[in-house]
Design a protein around this nucleic acid. Structure first.
Lengths: 224, 224
DNA sequence: AACGCTTATCTTGTATACTAGTGGACAATG
DNA sequence: CATTGTCCACTAGTATACAAGATAAGCGTT
């Protein structure tokens, strides 16, 4: 497991949660692997308490499984769960896109536009990390404009299933289409074409479907 | 606060969580009231640890606010949040209803039918508690049939906002329409009419909209 | 070899002890 | 009287100690 540096005003619990999440998504903590509160606490140089609280939160998102008196383990990839997470995003963001068409003002549209331009810039320069952050920001901004910010935070906890699979698949080749999608969605919103925005959003989020069989072939032991 | 009896194989943490939830929804723990881990632990005859873990979970659902080094408080009713919770259910359950029309088999339809018949029975006999449970079961069954069970569990944590407001409003008078809604939704599903099922589900979940101004008038100190 | 018991050693669950930050009461000071 | 500073009681955050269940190895018996 990779122990990340601490952020300034971060509590021990937040730190433990952040490091665990990062390592689970990157599969540095492999699906199916056992972890113990004691061991993690030692590695992070913390006591069991904040580590335990982080594990408890992760277990609520079903990304960690706590087996009482036996140990905790990073859950195997449950493809049904991954698809549920994707489905949640598709359904919710389609509805959000519709709302955004109705409520976005000029300032908000300009901010979105700025974001997409930056995406296009980073895509040309093949800088994938800032691209992923801009992707998150774009979708988050839509929730905010629609006045559903709390929902965005709620589903973010579930999206980790999705992110883990994404990190296993060859993701980079899809970036081109994804940025183009964002541009098209923005145009539909600016044109107040709710139907088109919904259609594009659905298409966009379906791109994240990754081939289960391919991944099962490559990483058979990661699946449940 | 009302201290409920313990269930058989329930951990201390689950017990604390259950009692806290119950008291928050019933407003026995009033919106805006301060609670302390020590005080709660004493009342529940537990140590701080399981109480703290329960509060931590509730704070993630934004039904409790933890103020470091100052205390914790039951959140004031945030109407925007209540509406987000309702919106989430509406959007998600509409999509679920569509799926159920495509996938439900005869056995599942019969189980739903059984449930609705029971609802009608309890409605005639004015037994509201079993009615609420059957309501939850009905919606839960739809998620299960659609293969989105995990999503149901996820959103349940958020629905507490919704439930709290519902418990403040005069809810009983609406039961008649709600049972009729369930019957109509079931019929649409049995007829495989996805469009009608979605329309009915939307209408159904919009009934739960309660008048903010009315509640603000009755309980001004409960609102933020 | 196969079975059943004991036991050592893990684990998480829970209780308790300690740390450090917050705000209020209240006295000292202007 | 207003303001400032000091203490005190209380809070959550964290560390540690202890309890109790699960597991597997060892060992004796059959």
């Amino acid at each position: 497991m990779e122990v990340l540096p601490r952020h300034p005003r971060e509590s021990n619990r937040e730190y433990a949660l952040r490091v665990l999440k990062e390592n689970i998504v990157s599969t540095a903590l492999a699906p199916g692997s056992m972890v113990s509160e004691n061991e993690l606490a030692a590695q992070l140089a913390l006591s069991r308490t904040p580590v335990r609280e982080a594990l408890l939160e992760l277990s609520k998102a079903k990304i960690v499984e706590i087996l009482p008196q036996r140990g905790s383990r990073v859950t195997l990839i449950d493809y049904a769960l991954v698809e549920e997470a994707r489905f949640l995003r598709e359904v919710l963001e389609r509805a959000v896109a519709e709302l955004v068409c109705q409520t976005a003002d000029a300032v908000q549209l300009e901010a979105l536009s700025q974001n997409v331009r930056l995406q296009e810039y980073h895509l040309e320069n093949h800088q994938l990390d800032p691209l992923m952050k801009l992707d998150d920001d774009f979708h988050g901004a839509l929730f905010k404009i629609a006045g559903k910010w709390q929902l965005h935070e709620l589903i973010n906890g579930f999206t980790i299933h999705f992110d883990r699979v994404r990190s296993l698949s060859l993701y980079a080749v899809k970036e081109l289409k994804i940025v183009a999608d964002h541009r098209a969605i923005l145009n539909a919103i600016a044109a107040r074409d709710a139907g088109e925005a919904q259609r594009l959003m659905t298409k966009h989020l379906n791109r994240y479907r990754v081939d289960e069989q391919e991944l099962r072939g490559k990483y058979p032991r990661y699946f449940g």
